[in-house]
Amino acid sequence: MSSDNRSLKQKATVSDSDDPVLQWVTFQLAEETYGINVMQVQEVLRHSEIAPVPGAPDYVLGIINLRGNVVTVIDTRTRFGLPTTEVTDNTRVVIIEAEQQVIGILVDSVAEVVYLRSSEIDSAPNVGTEESARFIQGVSNREGELLILVDLNKLLTDEEWDELSQI
């Protein structure tokens, strides 16, 4: 995957500066395809044991041991207001960097890396649930399929921080 990444990056750099190509890692969540900026993705892990943290907000699944570091994992389904499902073989934890911290997000599956020109990204129509709409940066229609681009920084907005610090 890493060599793939490199060639992808090269493609990105030769692109037109007026209409830059951005790369997005796509993942599945309740039949919908979402994309997150590849620059914010650190790694993708298989689902392993997640230690729940009593007293934590409900969308926090728990913590995992990532090579000696403690990383918080959030349940993206709960965060987006979707019903939770069973863990399957495809379930992945995507380790991302948002708001200067490293967190893991649990998704149904991770698909691929796609490139989109800025011009291909539309502003968000009213898709998905109200909860998830808050985190949407834009959408892109790709081969007849809708790709929802997530703004990870908004995934935990300042209001959330405040809310959390009040607990």
Partner: peptide, 16 residues
Amino acid sequence: KPLDRMLQGTPGMAGA
């Protein structure tokens, strides 16, 4: 190991 910012201040938990 201190808990993440997201979990800091979770009552009853001093860390992991």
